[in-house]
Amino acid sequence: MTNVYLTARFPRIAFTKLETNGFTVDYYTGRDLISHSKLLRKVAKADFLITTLSTVVDSEIIDAAPNLKLIANFGAGFNNIDTEYAKSKGILVTNTPKVSTNSVCELTIGLMLALSHREVEGDQMMRKDGFPGWSPLYFLGHEIAGKELGIVGLGNIGSELAVKANALGMKASYFKPHQLSEDEEKAQNVTYKPFDELVKTSDFISINAPLTDENHHQFNAEVFDNMKDSAFLINVGRGPIVDEAALLKALKANKIAGAALDVYENEPVFDKKFTKLKNVILTPHIGNATVEARDAMAEIVADNVIWSSKGKEPKYVVNK
Rank of each mutant, 00 (worst) to 15 (best):
K272P: 00
P268T: 06
I286V: 13
E313F: 06
L251H: 11
K272M: 08
P314I: 01
K252F: 04
Y264N: 03
K310M: 12
E244L: 09
V280Q: 05
A293G: 10
K278A: 11
T290A: 08
N304H: 10
L247Y: 03
D262L: 06
E292Y: 08
N279L: 07
V301T: 11
L277W: 01
M297N: 05
K272A: 11
P284D: 07
I281S: 03
A302I: 13
F270N: 01
A257Y: 07
V317L: 05
K312F: 05
L261Y: 02
W307V: 00
N254F: 00
L261C: 07
V317M: 07
T275N: 03
K273M: 08
V269W: 01
I281F: 09
K273E: 15
V318I: 12
D295T: 14
S309D: 08
A253E: 15
L261V: 12
L247D: 06
L261A: 02
E267F: 09
W307K: 12
S309Q: 09
I286E: 02
V301M: 11
L261W: 02
K276T: 14
K272C: 00
P284C: 06
V291H: 13
L277T: 09
V305S: 02
V269D: 12
L277N: 06
T283Y: 15
K272Q: 14
K276F: 03
K310G: 07
A259T: 14
A257V: 00
I256W: 13
T283V: 14
W307Q: 08
K276P: 00
I281K: 05
L251K: 05
K255I: 10
V291E: 14
G258W: 14
E299H: 10
E292R: 05
V280E: 04
A296V: 01
L248S: 09
K252W: 06
A302E: 09
I306Q: 10
G287S: 10
V263S: 03
V280W: 09
Y316L: 03
A245G: 08
L261D: 02
N254E: 15
